[in-house]
Structure formats: C-alpha cells, structure tokens
Design a protein around this nucleic acid. Sequence first.
DNA 1: TCTTGACCTTCCAGTTGATGGAACCTTTAT
DNA 2: ATAAAGGTTCCATCAACTGGAAGGTCAAGA
Lengths: 129, 129
Amino acid sequence: MNISEVAEHAGLPAKTIRYYEDIGLVTPTRGENGYRSFSEADAHKLTFLGRSRALGFSIEDCRRLLALWEDRDRASADVRALAQEHLARIEAKIADLDDMRATLADLVHRCAGDDRPDCPILKGLEAER
Amino acid sequence: MNISEVAEHAGLPAKTIRYYEDIGLVTPTRGENGYRSFSEADAHKLTFLGRSRALGFSIEDCRRLLALWEDRDRASADVRALAQEHLARIEAKIADLDDMRATLADLVHRCAGDDRPDCPILKGLEAER
DNA sequence: TCTTGACCTTCCAGTTGATGGAACCTTTAT
DNA sequence: ATAAAGGTTCCATCAACTGGAAGGTCAAGA
C-alpha cells in the first residue's frame, strides 16, 4: 500500500503518517523506487493511532498504548491505569475551561455591546472581581 | 520598577514579561544599566494581559483587547464581539472534550483492570464502535 | 515518444506561548 | 573583597503537526 492509500484507510493525512514514521511509531518497508510500502498491520496500527489521538492521548501515551496493544501478555490493569489518568487530565481541563466559560459568559452577558465605550468586559479584565 | 517587582505585581513570571516585550505587547524603558524600567501603566497593562490570558484569549486576541482597552473611543460592541467569539471557541472545545470524556469513561468503565490481557479499551481503540 | 499530471521523496521552516539554561553584567550587603 | 541576588542576551526545546520548495517516479493519453 502506498502512503495515500493507507492515509485514506486510517483517516490520517499522509504528512502525519510520515511524521509518525519519523518518530518511530510505524516502520513501513520501502519499495525499489523509495516509496513507503505499508502492510495491513501498518494500516491497522495507524488506525489505532488515529483513534487514540482522537481521544486526546498524547503521542507518548500512544506509544505506550501501542506497546500494550501488541503485547499479548499485557494486564488490562495497565491499559486501564493509562486511560484513567488521561481521563482525569481531560476532566481537569474541562473544569478549567468551564471556569473560563462561566466568567466569560458573565462578562459578555453584562456588556451592552453598543457603540458606547463603557465595557464591563474590559473592566473585568482589569482587576480581580 | 524592575522586572521582578512588576512580575510579582502582575502575577506573571519575569521570563514571560520579557517575552511579551519581545512580541511588542509592552515597551518598558531602560535604565542606564540596561535594566528594564516599568511604569505603573506597564504594570497595569501586564495585569490586564495576565487576566486575559487566564481567560484563554490568544496572544493576538490580547493584542486587540489591549488596543480596545486603550482606545477611549472604542465601541463596547467590538469588545463584546471578540469575547463572544472566544466564548464560542471555548464552548466548542468543551464539547469536544466532553465527547472524549464520555467515550473514555465508558471504555474505562468496561475494562476489568486486572491481570488478564482482555481489554475493552484496546478493542475500542481498534475499531469504530 | 513525449508530455502532463498525479504521486512520491526529503528537508527546512513555521505554528503557540512560553520555558530552561548558559554566559555574562550590575547591584547590594556583608 | 566577595558573594548572593538580581539583571541582561541569546539559543534551544516542548507538542504535534503542517506548509512549501525542489525534485524523482509512474501511468495514461496525443
């Protein structure tokens, strides 16, 4: 399989796949012409990576997940621990964003949004409320 | 005011303040010794920047907010529009993260997390569910 | 056969918003 | 005199790509 085919298959840009090879996540063979040649297993792996990334796992997490995925003797506890940690990070991020959202929504709500210069948003940014 | 004093005042690391000068957000004067010298206005500006960044505004947004803040003839509508857009971006991001959270929480919930290799998380990452 | 266009390759730079560190200068206190 | 605590510049690094230039390869059509 050439790169654009596997890209289509895995739902990732070719450029990203080259990058993943660069950082050692996949290791396609090369044809005589120098083109990368992807196996079914490579395609499967890239799909796995794509999904993992879509769930917000970092590249390093993906590397670990991949290693676990390919280890037939893994303990599901190890996978779960990784996922749980990531889940906690996501929840923390959501909490942060929700604080921002609340503050911002309040400021926006209180701003008349007309042609006058008076603006509660700017005032809110100026000082602790 | 030297940099560490203004840093304390604004709640920003000195390094960040130097960076903000680099990208033209603040322009402190210089003393004879080459040290940066910050005015009260600079300190105020940096506090404003700190708060804006804490609410998730990008540096470019901050630049615009700062311009509006310093323009006595601004229309609050312009500020509001900026904030509203940012709010929308935050809400979109929260929605994305919440999707991840839900999927991830489900997978984690379904994984036994013991010493056996069978793992719904890895299965979930493998293919569309 | 020639050419056109679609692929493929590598390599370098840029993105965002800082942050870490090295090497060096200035001020302040002992 | 010296040492600690500040200040300075500059360069590199982080994540995870993405864009673009310059050029090689391949398949199809005139």
